[in-house]
Design a protein around this nucleic acid. Structure first.
Lengths: 249, 249
DNA sequence: CGCTGGTTTGATCTTTCTCAAGCCGTGTGG
DNA sequence: CCACACGGCTTGAGAAAGATCAAACCAGCG
């Protein structure tokens, strides 16, 4: 059966690459993703994909572009909660909750498609479940940044996280990646002002740890950066680092 | 069949109360909880219930006492990620991850028991799933606090959240509740120093919005507080509060 | 050419941290 | 019964990180 091919159909590659990296997919799952991607449609920047407390139309798969979970306080203060990158899942909460827990806005023009149903696809289900665990890990990372990192650490740590997530989706190469965030958005993600973000970024540029121009970022020495910042979710530390050591800061 | 009754067995009531409030339980589920509670055992304060990157022995149900998810950086900075209260579930991640994503320490002496299996209990499964969604909502709330709230707002907002969660488990009454956290722990949860927490708490006491003595807290005018702080996860706001209003802070 | 959105810079102010000491209640061993 | 050690709370003075306000700059674009 020949399916009509919509022009401008988004590539399923980032989603395939990411989900497959999280948990190896079988052919059936891959076909499901490719099929879903053929139903992709574009959404312009600055549109709400999901609105807090409103029903979720259907869980989505982001195929291309960037989005973010955000909350805006009554007095206008804005906090970006997390970023949604190509290959990420949106609005899929185990099996409860027909209601969105937060607003999701597009930061760039994006391509989305309905998320393939996982019922009866244990392999796909597993991938979704791991994706969900990753989301949680990102929230935790965000808490650590906001709670205990300095401005400079916050900025670099977030950039590294985004870089690593983009790599998973195969949309970053070792010598740089497209970075569509403005300094103001960074500020509202990191609990800072854009002025301060700017000054810290400049400092990092001067130190040669960060090249950021024209929506492109390169990290000249990623391993060194990872060491400088405490990016050690995966590190096992000795007893001395017990949560109850006194004199900690 | 008469089961031997261990002395000092913890009450299943908070867990029952909380889970039933999240999603009404049937008798079968209640029996499962009560049975599990009969297997409860005590753990002293300042012990690790779960260690980051170590295998999870088995998912747990906290029956009594307080615990917290925490991360400690190499240089000793400590961040409490979230608090675990009576009736809360621990180490249950959909069906993936045999590995703990963060360390959980007891803050007081606690009583825990193995979490009843939910396989084949759709009703229990649903309650767990909602509990899990609540956990996520708490992480998001924590991000908002750390990112965009002032010190005073952070403190009051966290106290209100804990009060509301304790109410769900039925272990808080309108005129106050037991509050075992030290100001230092509050500080490490809120990204502040204990000195500053102390000063802000005193200010709130002077203003009469908070009574906190001897491990007991009362909130004389909760509705007013909720209004003063932006605690409006549940509020639907008009278009003007779009994530992209300019001039926001 | 003149907007527009984003970045950069400077000067000043505020919040929060740091360090250091004192206080207070509780429990413990002499 | 007292001394004192301990954990947690309180207070003060000075320092630093980050916010605020305001203006200039700069590139892309209609």
């Amino acid at each position: 059966m020949v399916r009509a091919q919509p022009r401008n159909r988004a590539s399923p590659t980032p989603a395939l690459s990411r989900l497959d990296a999280l948990s190896p997919l079988d052919d059936r799952s891959k076909v499901a993703i490719v099929d879903a991607a053929s139903l992709s449609y574009p959404v312009m920047a600055r549109r709400e994909l999901q609105t807090e407390n409103k029903a979720i139309r259907s869980p989505l798969l982001l195929l291309d572009g960037w989005a973010a979970r955000v909350r805006v306080l009554q007095d206008g203060r804005r906090q970006f909660i997390s970023f949604v990158l190509p290959g990420d899942i949106l609005g899929h909460y185990g099996f409860s909750s027909p209601v969105a827990t937060s607003t999701v806005v597009t930061l760039t023009d994006v391509q989305v498609c309905p998320l393939p149903e996982s019922a009866g696809f244990p392999i796909l289900e597993r991938a979704y479940s791991i994706s969900c665990a990753m989301d949680e890990a990102c929230l935790v990372a965000q808490i650590i940044r906001l709670g205990r990192f300095t401005a400079r650490e916050r900025i670099l740590d977030l950039i590294i996280e985004l870089y690593e997530r983009l790599s998973l989706a195969g949309v970053a190469d070792s010598d740089g990646f497209a970075f569509p965030l403005t300094q103001e958005i960074m500020a509202d993600a990191l609990g800072l002002t854009s002025v301060h973000v700017n000054r810290m970024v400049q400092q990092s540029r001067r130190l040669g740890e960060l090249c950021w121009t024209g929506g492109q970022i390169t990290l000249p020495d990623l391993p060194a950066l990872r060491r400088a910042i405490d990016r050690s979710t995966t590190t096992i530390r000795p007893w001395s680092a017990s949560p109850f050591v006194p004199g900690a800061r």
